[in-house]
Amino acid sequence: MTAHDAVQDMATPLVSVLIPAFNHERYVLRCLDSVLEDPYPAKELIVIDDGSTDRTGARIADWVATHCMDIPIEYVQREHRGIAATLNELAARANGEFLRPGASDDYLLPGGLAAQVDYLLAHPRKVVVIGDSVVVDRDGHKLHDSGMCDLHGADKSLYRTDDGIRRAVIRQWAIGGPVALIRRCALDTADRWSEGLRIEDWDLFLRLAARGVLGFIDVHVCAYRLHDANASRTRHTGARIANLAESRHVAMLRTGLFEEPYRTLLRAQSHYIDAKISFLERRPWPLLRHLAAYLALAARARLPPAGPHAEGT
Rank of each mutant, 00 (worst) to 15 (best):
V7H: 15
L14I: 06
L14T: 09
L18A: 02
L18M: 11
P20M: 01
H24W: 02
R26S: 08
L32F: 09
L36F: 12
D38M: 09
D38G: 05
E44D: 14
L45P: 07
I48F: 07
I48G: 02
T53P: 01
R55L: 11
G57T: 13
R59T: 04
I60W: 06
M69A: 08
D70K: 13
Q77C: 13
H80Y: 14
G82K: 01
L87R: 10
E89G: 02
L90C: 03
A91W: 07
A94E: 06
G96D: 13
R100N: 04
S104L: 02
Y107W: 11
L108K: 03
V117Q: 04
V129C: 04
S133K: 03
V135G: 01
D139Y: 12
G140W: 13
H144W: 12
H144I: 01
L151T: 00
S157N: 11
S157R: 07
G164K: 00
I165H: 03
R166G: 08
R166H: 03
R167Q: 08
A168S: 11
Q172M: 12
G176Y: 03
V179T: 10
C185Y: 07
L187P: 13
D188A: 14
T189P: 02
A190G: 11
D191H: 11
R192V: 10
W202S: 11
A209L: 09
G215T: 10
G215P: 03
F216G: 04
D218R: 00
C222N: 04
A223Q: 06
A229R: 11
E246P: 04
H249Q: 15
R254I: 11
P261F: 15
P261N: 04
A268F: 08
S270F: 11
I273S: 04
S278H: 09
L280N: 06
P284K: 00
P286Y: 09
L288H: 07
L288S: 14
L291V: 12
A296S: 09
L297P: 01
A298L: 13
A299N: 12
R302S: 11
A306P: 01
P308C: 07
